[in-house]
Amino acid sequence: TETREFDNEEEARKEAERLRRKGQDVQIRKKGNRWELRRT
């Protein structure tokens, strides 16, 4: 599992969408005042 953190939700969602188009399974969750993007 690979995780990346983003400062805002929009960036996290854009990156998640990009990875999903490549066929990756991605989850986003709020972590304090940041957003965590998890690739499984």
Rank of each mutant, 00 (worst) to 15 (best):
D7F: 06
K14M: 12
D7C: 13
K22L: 15
K30F: 05
R34M: 12
R18Q: 08
N8W: 03
G32F: 01
R20P: 00
E17A: 12
F6Y: 10
E15V: 08
L37P: 04
G32M: 01
K22I: 13
R13I: 13
G23F: 03
V26H: 03
K31T: 08
R21K: 10
R29W: 09
I28L: 10
R38L: 15
A16W: 11
K30S: 04
R13T: 10
W35F: 04
Q27G: 05
K22F: 12
A12M: 03
D25A: 12
R38S: 13
R18D: 06
D7M: 07
R34S: 07
F6Q: 00
L37C: 11
E17P: 01
R29M: 13
K30T: 04
R29A: 11
R21N: 09
A16I: 03
E11R: 03
E9T: 01
A12Q: 00
K14R: 12
E2P: 09
F6S: 01
W35L: 02
I28R: 02
F6C: 02
N33K: 05
T1Q: 11
R18A: 09
V26N: 02
I28K: 01
T1N: 12
Q27L: 11
E9Q: 06
N33F: 04
K31Q: 07
K22G: 09
L37Q: 03
R13H: 11
R13M: 13
E11L: 06
A12N: 00
T40F: 10
D25H: 14
R20D: 00
R20V: 05
K22H: 11
D25Y: 14
K31M: 09
E5Y: 15
T3P: 11
A16M: 12
V26S: 04
D25T: 13
E17Q: 10
G23H: 04
K31P: 02
R21G: 09
E9W: 15
E9G: 03
W35Q: 00
E10N: 08
R4E: 08
T40K: 09
R13Q: 12
T40D: 07
N8T: 15
D7G: 05
A12K: 00
K30L: 04
E17S: 09
D7A: 08
N33G: 08
G23T: 01
T3R: 10
E36N: 00
L19K: 00
I28A: 03
E5M: 14
E17V: 08
A12R: 01
T3H: 09
R13W: 11
A12Y: 01
N33E: 10
K30D: 01
E36P: 03
R39T: 15
K22M: 15
R20S: 06
R29V: 15
R20N: 04
A12V: 05
E9I: 13
T3A: 10
V26E: 00
E36H: 03
E36W: 06
R34D: 05
I28D: 00
R38Y: 15
Q24S: 07
R34Y: 08
K22A: 13
R13A: 08
W35M: 01
F6K: 00
E36I: 12
K30E: 03
R18G: 05
T3M: 11
R13S: 07
W35P: 03
E15N: 03
K22P: 03
Q24G: 06
V26I: 08
R21Y: 06
D25W: 13
E5A: 08
R13G: 04
R39S: 15
T3Y: 13
A12T: 02
R39Q: 14
R18L: 11
D7Q: 06
R21M: 12
L19V: 02
K30P: 05
L19M: 11
W35S: 00
L19F: 05
K30A: 06
E36A: 02
T1K: 09
T1L: 12
K30G: 03
E5L: 15
K22T: 12
A12D: 00
K30Q: 08
Q27S: 11
R38P: 00
R13D: 05
Q27Y: 13
D7I: 07
L19S: 03
A12C: 14
R20K: 08
E9M: 08
G32K: 04
K14Q: 13
D25G: 07
A16G: 06
R29D: 06
I28Q: 01
K14N: 10
R20W: 09
T3F: 12
E9N: 02
K14W: 11
F6W: 04
E36L: 07
Q24K: 06
T3W: 15
V26K: 01
E17N: 11
R38N: 09
E11N: 06
R20Q: 06
V26F: 09
T40S: 10
W35H: 01
N33D: 14
E5P: 03
R38W: 13
Q24D: 09
G32D: 06
E36F: 09
V26G: 02
K31R: 11
R20G: 04
L19Q: 04
Q24F: 15
N8L: 06
E2W: 15
N8V: 05
V26W: 14
E5V: 14
D7Y: 07
R21T: 07
E9V: 09
L19T: 01
W35N: 01
R39M: 15
F6P: 01
A16P: 00
K22V: 10
R34I: 12
T40A: 10
R39P: 14
Q24Y: 15
E36S: 01
T1V: 13
L37N: 03
N8G: 04
K31L: 10
T1H: 13
R38Q: 12
A12E: 00
D25E: 12
K22Q: 14
R21Q: 10
L19G: 01
R4P: 05
N33A: 05
L19A: 04
E17G: 07
R38T: 15
E15W: 10
R39G: 13
E17W: 08
N8E: 05
K31A: 08
Q27M: 11
R18Y: 09
E5Q: 09
F6E: 00
D7W: 07
G32C: 04
R38F: 15
R13K: 11
R38G: 08
K14T: 11
E36M: 05
L19E: 03
G23Q: 02
K22R: 12
I28N: 01
E10D: 11
A16Y: 13
E9S: 03
R4F: 14
T3N: 09
K31D: 03
T3E: 07
K14D: 09
E9F: 15
E2I: 13
E9L: 14
E15K: 02
D7R: 06
R20A: 07
G32R: 02
T40L: 13
E2T: 12
D7K: 06
R39F: 15
T40V: 14
G23W: 03
R39W: 15
F6I: 01
A16N: 00
R21L: 12
R29L: 14
N33T: 05
R20L: 06
R34V: 09
R18I: 11
L19N: 01
G23A: 02
E15P: 00
E10V: 08
R18M: 10
R29C: 15
E10H: 10
N8P: 01
G32N: 06
D25M: 14
A16E: 04
A12I: 02
R4W: 15
Q24H: 14
K31F: 05
I28T: 02
Q27D: 08
E2F: 14
W35Y: 04
T3G: 09
R21D: 07
T3L: 12
A12L: 02
A12W: 01
G23Y: 04
K22Y: 10
L37Y: 00
K31N: 12
R34T: 05
E2A: 12
K14A: 14
N33M: 05
Q24N: 08
G32H: 02
R34P: 00
F6T: 01
L37E: 04
D7H: 06
I28V: 13
D25S: 13
D7N: 06
F6A: 02
D7S: 07
E5H: 10
T3I: 14
I28F: 03
N33I: 03
L37I: 11
E10M: 10
A16R: 04
A16H: 04
E10A: 10
K30H: 04
L37T: 06
A16L: 09
E10Q: 10
G23L: 02
E36G: 02
D25L: 13
E17R: 11
R18N: 08
Q27E: 14
Q27I: 14
L19P: 00
I28Y: 04
D7L: 07
N8R: 05
T1D: 12
R18W: 07
A12P: 01
